[in-house]
Write a protein that binds this DNA or RNA. Structure first.
Lengths: 335, 335
DNA sequence: TTAATTTACGCAAACGATTGCGTAAAATGG
DNA sequence: CCATTTTACGCAATCGTTTGCGTAAATTAA
């Protein structure tokens, strides 16, 4: 029944007076093994609860049947949904998904990428916190053969697989919506400068302003890295000096920081200042006054990214055809 | 520089005209190798970017230097924080953490446990969705030698490592607080019956009522599994038939469902009905009216669970000393 | 100077599974 | 009845590391 030590092929082979290779083949229903023998081996294996050692299998087969996904933070609903999409596809194809988080630390990110490579994951889904040049370098240094699909935050070149949402359009729409509400001094709480999503969202924001004949005021654009501290300083400074009449926030966390900061303002302003931000938080719609949300199709992004990855993994022909998918985001809670 | 195929020991050994074993030992700074040779090997390995194949290493060493954590849902802030605590400790000790989610599916959970065992994770942190008898059976069937620490949802017996928060006391305090506010018809939205947290939280709730001379009304106690549907049906039914003047919700999700359901009620009641629930959601305090929150020390729970696990992994002596840690939860947003 | 020891390395087995190839015995063909 | 094919299995190499043991050469001891 329950053995002290996992049973292996050689245990079975000894018990049944067969060779290890016969047992191995019998268990995979090889035609080279007699029906009788197969039955015996299979039923015995079932009885003693034999489970192949995946480490050994992986070493021999040179694949591991799992893919890794590296995200900044699993508690971020956007990434959690992406992961769910990835799992949905991967599990259907017999792959396991292992999740790593970087907490937006470059050091951690690089360590994890190296580890994933050394553990021979069959593929990697990556939304890098680290700047793209460095990431690409790391990817090169690990000795190839690790297929990668980038999502959300992606390199700018076209020599890689990418899945994103239409950040430009979403930012444009959200900003335009604020303008239609009569807002003019719209602040933009941007993510770290230099990464793709920040650039595109800023571009959409700027285009919407210009499109409405409003000039882009650099004072109203604030970059925050991943520290709460920075965001709060930016918000306080904005309120003291410029009193924006609306905020457009570029990430989940920034959206909520904005919201909290605004709610702390004295009465009239607290209700007048509009906030729209990227967020997939499932309970954002419960907030009063409303937090308007740009919701990304996270689950689908995960599904598509996983499909692209698994395609390149199982692809026989080596001709790389890089994919670039862009999905629309939607604006919600606009009453 | 960047090679087409990861370089292995034998590549180095050929290039330097040394045996594989010498190279291996040189790289781990063995005293059996001459200083001169070590320098040569090490610098060459660095130049060609040698990284040991962890699959091969694991097979030989019979350990993998990583631990697995299986949670119902990573987007649940409580579990996300636990994971962070686990990572904090594990990474400090040179272990990687891989995260799996079950989505509260027994089938997935069992599959994952089996997979973790077959991949030879060095240990497992588990908050099982599945009933304890079945889980324990699965744990047995995988052929021992997989140390486990349970957290949050734990088996009732004392023959395992456990880390929990004081669910009974937290539920007692929360319910007592509602009573002090003058509430008398306090509904309890409980999680799936049969698992530890549901039982303890229900017990705390009941004790608080009895302690205040209020009889426990079974009509006000509703069990919901993991489907949103069930929770909503329960809430609608409660409102139609019993109009509770307060809700005590047993989980993150239930807390928000309650909150949303109550906010949808007609004006006077929507503001009068109090809600207190277990949640670690970082933005729960932004809700108006307030959602009072029982916040668990999730990060610490993760840290402690990981420490317990790593202790039993590295323990030389085989005498199992089962640990059982219980931490206090705190009541927040009570104005 | 000779024996004992140390140094510095190589050989080969092992971890657990897979698989190409070889080969008895059985089955088939003519 | 003999030659050929098929069936059913075993042997041994392999995946990339690690490590016990063996052994020449170098060093030390006496």
């Amino acid at each position: 029944m329950d053995q002290e030590r996992p049973v292996k092929l050689s245990d079975i082979s000894k018990a049944l007076n067969l060779s290890v290779s016969t047992v191995s083949r019998a268990l995979k229903d090889s035609h080279e093994i007699g029906e009788e023998t197969k039955k015996i081996v299979q039923s015995y294996a079932a009885r003693v609860n034999y489970r192949p050692n995946l480490i050994a299998q992986s070493l021999k087969e040179m694949n591991t049947r799992y893919i890794a996904i590296i995200v900044p933070e699993i508690s971020n609903s956007f990434f959690a949904e992406v992961v769910n999409g990835v799992e949905f596809v991967a599990n259907n194809q017999g792959y396991h998904v292992v999740i790593y988080q970087t907490h937006d630390s470059t050091e951690r990110e690089i360590n994890i990428i190296r580890d994933v490579a050394r553990r021979k994951a069959d593929g990697l889904l990556l939304s890098p916190s680290t700047n793209q040049k460095e990431v690409k370098e790391v990817m090169k240094s690990i000795g190839a053969k690790l297929p990668v699909v980038y999502f959300d935050r992606v390199p700018s070149d076209n020599y890689c697989h990418k899945v994103v949402c239409d950040n430009y359009q979403a930012a444009f729409d959200a900003t335009t919506w604020l303008i239609k509400l009569g807002k003019r001094r719209i602040a933009h709480m941007a993510g770290p400068s230099g990464i793709s999503i920040s650039i595109e969202r800023l571009a959409g924001y700027s285009a919407a302003l210009l499109n409405a004949g409003i000039s882009v005021d650099p004072n109203l654009i604030r970059y925050s890295n991943f520290l709460a501290r920075e965001a709060w300083d930016n918000l306080r400074d904005l309120e003291e000096k410029f009193q924006p009449d609306a905020y457009f926030a570029s990430s989940d966390r920034l959206s909520f920081y904005c919201y909290e900061a605004v709610q702390k303002l004295p009465e009239p302003r607290a209700l007048e200042v509009k906030i729209v931000g990227f967020t997939n938080a499932p309970f954002a719609h419960l907030l009063r006054p409303k937090l308007s949300a740009i919701v990304q199709p996270a689950f689908d992004m995960g599904k598509i990214a996983a499909e692209m990855l698994l395609n390149t993994i199982t692809k026989k022909n080596k001709d790389i055809e890089y994919g670039f998918i862009k999905l629309p985001a939607v604006l919600k809670n606009t009453e």
